[in-house]
Write a protein that binds this DNA or RNA. Structure first.
Lengths: 99, 99
DNA sequence: TGGTCATTTGGTCAAGTAGCCAATTGTTCT
DNA sequence: AGAACAATTGGCTACTTGACCAAATGACCA
């Protein structure tokens, strides 16, 4: 068997849903290069810090990222690096049909 | 470089978004085993056929699946099989924290 | 041609999501 | 203690989504 069926379909879908937003996906890709604090991620996506923080809450809720508070800053890191592999496959498909 | 940055982030995110719904993800997983007509997919997810059809429109719009009309039926097939690989990785993570 | 079956489309409504601002929490520095 | 900074939370509004029903399309069969 390749794909398991005893895991809730919505639990799986929630992970995709969390990645289904340009800002959140951009942050996950940035985290692929190493941990970043919220203010650094804010620069990546360019929106209000409160918005960034809420996006990070979504990513944390599904276990895609992990938060580590150190001093005044909170550092986020990627817990599911295989996400980047899928992004590459998606990119390949998008390139093939000419973005 | 591992992840390209000249491809629109929202184009990528739209693919994740399309997968971010239990019914759509279930259909994609079912299509991983081979092509299926809409009525077969309807049995997989159990909702109204019009709802299933709209979900399939979403998947088709982002290029995840392909439609082929043969006689009265429309057969859908999976265009991005690497999706299944990511689902497996997601499953592994979900299992590790005890679904 | 008329009927039936598979699928799609249009419309409506309830529910969910994203963004911003303002206010709050918690930490460091003086 | 009080100022300054990083991050989170609450609240509001605008927008998007999902589900169902009803109606339309399109293919096959009698």
């Amino acid at each position: 068997m390749t794909v398991e069926h005893d895991i809730s379909m919505s639990a799986r879908a929630d992970i995709f849903k969390a990645l289904g937003h340009a800002a959140r996906l951009a942050m996950v890709i940035a985290l692929g290069k190493g941990e970043r604090c919220v203010c650094e991620l804010q620069e990546v996506v360019g929106s209000d810090m409160s918005t960034v923080s809420k996006h990070l809450t979504v990513l944390r809720a599904v276990g895609l990222v992990e938060a580590d508070k150190r001093g005044k800053q909170v550092y986020y890191s990627l817990k599911l690096p295989c996400t980047l592999g899928f992004v590459e496959c998606v990119d390949k498909a998008l390139r093939e049909r000419g973005h």
